[in-house]
Design a protein around this nucleic acid. Sequence first.
DNA 1: TTTAGGG
DNA 2: CCCTAAA
Length: 472
Amino acid sequence: MAMHSFDDIFDDISSRSSLRIPPLQDLFPGPSTTSARLSPLEPIARVNIGSETNKLTGRRAALAQAKPLDAPETDEWETLAPVKLTLRPEVPKIHQLQEPPRKKQKLYDHEQIADFVQLPKPQTKARENKPRPFQPVAVLNELLEPPPSAALFPPITPSAGQEEQGRSPFRSRFSKTSKGEGESSTRRKRTKGRSASPTTTKRTYNRGRTKWTEEETDQLVKGVAIYGVGRWKNILEHPEFHFKQGRTSMDLKDRFRVCFPPDAPHKWVRPIPVGPETDDAKSASSPAAKKGSPHKDANILSRSRKRHWSEEEDAELDKGFRLYGYQWNLMVKDPNLRFDRRSGGQIRDRFRLRFPELYNQQDSAPQQKKPHDKNLNSNKNQQPLQAKPAMTSRRSSDFKEQARNDEGDLEGEGRAPLKTALSFTTGLLNAEDEHYKLSNSILRDDWDWDDNLTLAPVAWEDMANKPMFQFD
DNA sequence: TTTAGGG
DNA sequence: CCCTAAA
C-alpha cells in the first residue's frame, strides 16, 4: 500500500522494530532552530519507552531505554543526522550485548542525545584549541602594530606597567578564522589606498582579560562626551586617547555599559578609581591582597559621599556671586570659575551655609542686568560680597557668544580660553584639550549635577544624537 | 564595517 | 570578553 501522509509513515516505522532510527531531535533543521515545532521523530522516543521507565519522560526516557544493539549502523543514520555524529569506537558491540544494562551515568550535555553517540565535545575553552602564543616577531606584522600615535609615547615594556604583570603582551593567538601568517599579508591588499587601521573593531586574536585602568575609563568617558554614545570607533581612534594595546571599540562599548548602566540614565556615576595598575598585578599574584581590595566588584560608586569645599572653591563662589548673584547655574557654566564639578544646587547650598543672611536677601535683589566679565579681573576679593544684579535670562548661546568675544577682545590677558569651559563644565577634560568647542547641548540651564556624577544627567539617547562637544 | 544586544 | 544579527 502506498503511504502518503507522514502519519502513515510514522505508524509503519513504529510497528517495525527492525527499523532502527536514531532518536534524532529534528529532521528538518531550518532557519528556525528553536524547537517550537515538534520534531516528527519525537514520538519515536516515546514509543520505545518501556514500563520500567515510565517515570522518565521525553528524551531521557528514550536514552534510558536505548540499548546499544539498537544503535543503527553508522552509515544508516548518519545520512539522516543533521549533525555529525561519531560512534565510540572503543566499545565493541559484543561486549555491550553481554553486559547487563549499565547504570545510567550522569549525562554530559553533549551526550544528551544518546549514550551511544558521541557528539563532538563542546569546547569549554575555545582558546585552548587555538594555536599557542606566537612569539612577538611572528605576529608583529599586523596584529600588534603600534597605534599611529605610538611614537608620542614610550614603548610598552614590562617596566612601563601598561600591561598586566605576568601576562605577556604577546599572548595573542590567531583565531580559527585566521589561516596563518600568510593571511595577514594577503589580507592587507583589501585595504587599498586606505591604510589599515591598527585599532580594529574586532580583535583578530584572543587576548586575556586586560583590566581597565582609571585613565582608560576616563578617556572613554571623555570620548563619549566628545563623540557621543555609540561612537566607539571614533573614541578608540581619537588621537589623544591611548587605550591599551588590543583594545577594540567593542571593549569600549562594554566598558561604558558597565560603568554607566543604561538602566539608570539619570544617575551616571563615576567609576571607582582602581588605583595604579601595579596593585592589580600584585593582587593577582597574592590571593590575600586580592581579598583586601574592596572595590573589586563594585565598579559603581555609591552616590552618597559629599565632597568638601576647598578654599579655592569658596573663593570661586565669592567671585561667582559678584558676577552672577544668586544664579548658581550661571556660575557653573562660567568658564572662568573653577568649581570642581559642582552643581548649581551645591553651590547654592554652600553659599547658604556660608552666608545665610545674604542668601535670604535674594528675594529683594533686583534681577535684571547681564553681567560682564570685565569685573572678573578687577575684583580682587577686596570688596565685600555684593551680588551682581542678575539678568533675566541667559542661555547657552549667550555663553558661546561671550566666549567668542573673550577670545577676540581679551586675548593675551591670560584669560582662560574656551577650552577651559570644557574641563570645567564637565570635569572631564583637562587643559590639553584645545580643539574642542562647546555645542549647545552641554550648556543647559536646568542641569543640576550630583556629587558623584561625572557627566550631566543626560539620557543615552541625547548623548548619542547630540554629542556634547564637536570639533572645530 | 561598525554597532547594539545578548551570552 | 565573545559572538552575531543587523544596519
